[in-house]
Write a protein that binds this DNA or RNA. Structure first.
Lengths: 229, 229
DNA sequence: CGGATTTTGTTACGGCGTTCACAAGCTCGT
DNA sequence: ACGAGCTTGTGAACGCCGTAACAAAATCCG
């Protein structure tokens, strides 16, 4: 039960499951699917935590947000827990997405194995270049941007992926919003603005590298100054 | 000595910047570079915060970790601040990286514009498939995994990128570690283990989509259930 | 049947990150 | 020269997340 301190008044009612937990649930689900495929029936929080590399207490707390689906003294029933997690994060249905921008990145995403194994289906590809329309990539024919509204309606698409160059990202996002998309994942190295009610998540592939570079530099400058650690 | 946890280093001589700040500095830097290219000389925290979409106080606190480089009543000198951020995150030098796995994702990364604009240079491509060795992708000839140590030494590479399928990720990481790499960015949907002293950052492209799907589902189920907390 | 054992669900706590609010300090107009 | 108006830098409060410890519950075994 959610008796937590949040007033659950004012803003958007109850906030549901913490984002940090939502980000881990797919990882748990993948591990559980693996266990189920190997015929494992039940699993303790310790075993599962070891498997995915997190603290057992954290895992139990994460799962407790879904409800009390474990049995004390026994553990969790793998099959049942799979179903509950899948239901919570929306993996009982396939989610259709449309990718805007079929460059290298768009092509990579259209065949990313991490998608298909998690209930995400690339329903359509769109590119601004007229010369590429009709070309088949990863088994999908590229459509024109003008066809977006029709594609969204036809495939019941709720999520759009922007994989264009940075300059075209805003235009791509605008087209997606006009077509009725309410959630956008932006891989372009540029930030986009959208109307209220539309969710955007920004993925900047180079930021992770920058963080690594920062730590690398700290290593070298530190060892040059004083031989710590 | 602190009794609890890991006291990172020990002294105030430790100029360590919080990870959350390090992750934002590249974003600030890109915006500042844009301003400089348009001839803007000074910039207030409010303007810059609006530009990148963060809270002004947060931005000021982030920048304060670098030192007191602003002028009260005026703002920050764009050119100077660019230089300071670049120095702090190691962007004064180019960072050479090697990409293991030249599938769609590896190809996309090898030509990702977000890299070159941030001082990250793809120095070498490596693939496990003998048939692909010698093939030129994004202007770089693919090498064999066995050549990794030589490539790392030749190009002074400190960071390796894993862009293989999930099954090959651990092998790829091992090869990188053996070749002397100390920082790894893993795009494969699988988690890898490395010796102490080697940094790993995991990027799972599908997790972001899962989070969007979760919020989408909450929208629909909420409008259906309505009212119940 | 009752206690030992196992494992969950929860609570308490410490740390980190974000936001607010305000003093300190700079520039400009008069 | 001096006050008015900005803007930075920072101390304090707040909320979120992760960890540890513990009570509740279910099974097993003598």
């Amino acid at each position: 039960m959610t008796i937590l301190g949040t007033p659950s008044f004012g803003d958007d009612a109850d906030r549901g499951i913490p984002d940090a937990t939502v980000a881990r649930l797919p990882v748990y689900l993948r591990a559980l699917n693996g266990l189920r495929d190997r015929g494992v029936v039940t699993c303790s929080s310790n075993e599962l935590a070891e498997l995915v590399g997190v603290n057992p207490a954290k895992l139990r707390k994460d799962l407790s947000h879904l409800g009390s689906y474990g049995t004390r003294g026994v553990g969790y029933e793998v099959e049942f827990l799979c179903h509950q997690i899948a239901r919570e994060i929306g993996q009982t249905q396939d989610w259709n997405v449309v990718i805007v921008g079929v460059g290298h990145l768009g092509t990579a995403l259209s065949s990313y194995q991490g998608f298909s194994s998690r209930g995400i289906r690339v329903a359509a590809l769109v590119d601004a270049d007229p010369a590429r329309i009709g070309e088949v990539v990863s088994g999908i024919a590229i459509s024109a941007v003008a066809d977006l509204p029709a594609l969204v309606a036809e495939h019941d698409v709720a999520i759009g992926v922007v994989a264009t160059p940075g300059e075209a990202a805003q235009t791509a996002a605008d087209s997606l919003v006009d077509a009725g998309i309410t959630s956008i994942l932006n891989f372009a190295p540029a930030l986009v603005t959208v109307p209220d009610g539309v969710q955007v998540r920004q993925v900047d592939l180079s930021i992770e590298l920058q963080i690594l570079a920062y730590h690398e530099q700290r290593k070298t400058t530190h060892s040059a100054a004083e031989g710590v650690i």
